[in-house]
C-alpha cells in the first residue's frame, strides 16, 4: 500500500434497527496512512458504522465495505483482525482479570501459532513463542509509556490508563487500519493531550491508517487530516478540517441554527 491509495472503501452502508434508521447510504474512502475523523452529534451513527466494519452489525443489502481488496461483509467477525483491522471501544472492553502484559499478549493471539498440544506441553514452541511475542508487547508498552503498570491487573487501573491499555491491545494486533471509538472520553486535558500524542506517535511509527471517532473538536481539527461528518445516519460533509469548520451544514447540525 502506497500513501494515497484507497485503503478502506465504505460504500452505501445502510443499517436499520426495526423502525430506526441508524445509517442511510453512507459512503467514504480512507487513503492509506491517513487519519480520518468521524464526527457527528450523539446518535449520528458513528459507532454503528464501526460496528459494521467489525462485522458486529450486518448492514442492509446493497452495502459494500472493501479493505485492501477484501470484502469485509463476506468475512466472519473473528477473521477481521487477521486482515489487519483493530479497534478500541467507546466503553472499554478490556480483559479486566488479566494484567496489562497479558491483555496485550492475548491480542497477539492471531500472530501466534501454538495449538492445543503445544500449549498443554508448554515445551519448545509455545514457550519460545511467548518469549518472542513478549518482546513485541514490551515495545508497545515502551511506546505508550506503560512500564509501571505492566504487571498490574487491568480491573484495578484508573480510567485513563485503561484507555491506554486498550489502545496498546489494539496495537498488539499490528493493524494497518486502526479504529478508535472515542479514545479520549472521560479524560482530563492532560490525559487527552497524552492520548493525542500517542495516536500521532503510532501514526508516524507504523504508518497506520486511523479512523477516529471523537467529540473534542479542537483535538479533531488538530490531528485529523480529513473529517467525515454524520448526522442522523447521513453523511453531511467530508473534507479537510478547515473545510469542515466553515461548512454550513455541519454548523447547523451542531448548533441547530440556519446560517
Amino acid at each position: 500500500m502506497n500513501p494515497g491509495d484507497i485503503h478502506l472503501s465504505v460504500q452505501n452502508v445502510s443499517l436499520r434497527f426495526g423502525g430506526a434508521q441508524a445509517l442511510k447510504g453512507v459512503s467514504f474512502d480512507a487513503q492509506s496512512g491517513e487519519i480520518v475523523a468521524l464526527i457527528g452529534p450523539n446518535g449520528a451513527g458513528k459507532t454503528s458504522l464501526l460496528n459494521c466494519l467489525n462485522r458486529f452489525y450486518q448492514p442492509d443489502a446493497g452495502a459494500r465495505i472493501l479493505f485492501e481488496g477484501h470484502d469485509l461483509l463476506r468475512t466472519p467477525a473473528h477473521r477481521i483482525p487477521r486482515l489487519g483491522i483493530a479497534r478500541t471501544f467507546q466503553n472499554l472492553a478490556l480483559y479486566t482479570g488479566l494484567t496489562t502484559l497479558d491483555n496485550l499478549l492475548a491480542a497477539r493471539h492471531i500472530h501466534m501459532r501454538s495449538g492445543l498440544l503445544d500449549c498443554v506441553l508448554y515445551w519448545g514452541r509455545a514457550h519460545r513463542e511467548d518469549i518472542v511475542h513478549r518482546q513485541v508487547v514490551e515495545d508497545i508498552i515502551d511506546l505508550l509509556e506503560m512500564e509501571h503498570i505492566r504487571k498490574a491487573v487491568v480491573g484495578a487501573l484508573p480510567h485513563g490508563l485503561r484507555k491506554r491499555v486498550e489502545l496498546g491491545r489494539a496495537l498488539a494486533l499490528e493493524p494497518r487500519l486502526l479504529l478508535l471509538d472515542e479514545p479520549m472520553t472521560g479524560m482530563n486535558q492532560e490525559e487527552k493531550e497524552d492520548m493525542a500524542r500517542f495516536i500521532l506517535d503510532i501514526h508516524e511509527r507504523y504508518k497506520t491508517t486511523i479512523l477516529l471517532i471523537e467529540h473534542d473538536m479542537g483535538l479533531v481539527m488538530d490531528i485529523a487530516q480529513r473529517v467525515v461528518v454524520l448526522d442522523f445516519g447521513v453523511k453531511i460533509a467530508d473534507g479537510t478540517p478547515a473545510e469542515i469548520r466553515d461548512n454550513p451544514a455541519v454548523i447547523q447540525a451542531y448548533l441547530g441554527t440556519t446560517v
Partner: peptide, 14 residues
C-alpha cells in the same frame, strides 16, 4: 480468559 472477561472483544480481536 479473554472469552471469560469479554467474549465480544475476544471475537473482535480474532
Amino acid at each position: 480468559v479473554s472469552i471469560r472477561d469479554n467474549d465480544l472483544a475476544a471475537e473482535l480481536l480474532g
